[in-house]
Design a protein around this nucleic acid. Structure first.
Lengths: 204, 204
DNA sequence: GTCTATAATGGGATAGAC
DNA sequence: GTCTATCCCATTATAGAC
């Protein structure tokens, strides 16, 4: 019997069914928090969408707070699908590609935008996540811009770390405008425009 | 008697005391919504801060929704204090000055950032406000950039409307990062950096 | 693991006395 | 205009049967 076999694998082993259930819940929570925010979305909403009772949900995630943290962790995994790390790719291309990739996954940008701003409010459980996320992003893009600067491909007068901060800020702001007016805002094109201002074209 | 005099002015005239009370409530609501968002802030929170009961509050604003709309309208008045319209001032200078001005008023940026993102969620009463606000902002800055373009002061290849959209997006995104890490983010300086990339210095 | 029942709290809004 | 009392509903979380 399958259940027995899995159980035999060890007391703390990942039970297939249970793990599947967790994923279902995380998908539901992702959608609910994206559509209504953390405070605005209820465990009942999530449970309904996952097809179970609210109490069953709390069997997998002991509190709403825990659920949120798991949703945020999962978001990183989803979006990192755009980065084949081993590939040599220009900064501009990789930014554009990531922007387009995220735009194609329903709810990803909504979740990010809504929870990020909500996280600056009092006692919000997501605050540390977003604070650290920005630190990582700024440092990461700062390094990429510094690499370009080292080979003379950063426009004179442009600081790598400042460009990184501005790129991230621009990206976020464009996504917000896009959510409110998707037909009027082209996130990827505006990012390309900024990068063209900042990066000197390859000379060959 | 003052009350009588005011009353004599007409049945619908603004009763001084009542108007004062409304302002007190709006100040309180501004602070509460800035700190906890619309969904996260309760009428009780606002009433406590305004020094009255929750029911008295509802005497002045018939619903939480009405209160929010009035807070948003009031925000426009507060922030428009930075614009002496009659003055001839360069686009860059006016942007920097407004950014610094807003930064100095406690809660203004919090309120804006938190409610704006929250407004993209389902059935949020602030959605139309922010949608229209962005349309106005993009159009307004678009005209300013177009004026610069007309006198050859826009960098070649830069479109006025696209620059307007990017400027607004960058501004919003920087404010978000600033709220999470005020010591690491200089909104005005980063805006200046962008405008320097886009605008050609005056030739004289 | 899943459910019903329920606890414990807090929300927005209304009625009506003063 | 201001309050107390209250309605009604939703929320997160727990207890305990199956």
């Amino acid at each position: 019997m399958t259940t027995k076999d899995v159980a035999r694998a060890g007391k703390r082993g990942p039970y297939a069914k249970s793990e599947e259930r967790r994923q279902t819940i995380l998908d539901a929570a992702h959608a609910v928090f994206a559509a209504r925010g953390y405070r605005g979305g209820s465990l009942q909403d999530v449970a309904d969408r996952a097809g179970m009772s609210q109490t069953s949900l709390l069997h997998y995630f002991p509190s709403k707070r825990d659920l949120l943290m798991s949703v945020l962790e999962r978001r990183d995994e989803i979006t990192s699908g755009a980065f084949p790390d081993d590939m040599e790719e220009g900064l501009a291309d990789s930014v554009i590609r990531t922007a387009l990739y995220n735009e194609g996954i329903p709810g990803v940008i909504e979740l990010y935008t809504v929870l990020c701003a909500e996280s600056v409010t009092d006692e919000h459980p997501g605050r540390d996540y977003f604070t650290e996320r920005y630190e990582r992003l700024r440092a990461s893009y700062g390094r990429r811009f510094a690499e370009l600067a080292a080979v003379g491909r950063l426009r004179p007068g442009v600081d790598p770390d400042e460009a990184a901060m501005s790129l991230v800020a621009l990206w976020d702001g464009l996504q917000t405008q896009w959510l409110l007016a998707p037909d009027d805002v082209d996130v990827a094109e505006r990012l390309r425009g900024y990068l063209k201002l900042v990066i000197v074209p390859e000379s060959n």
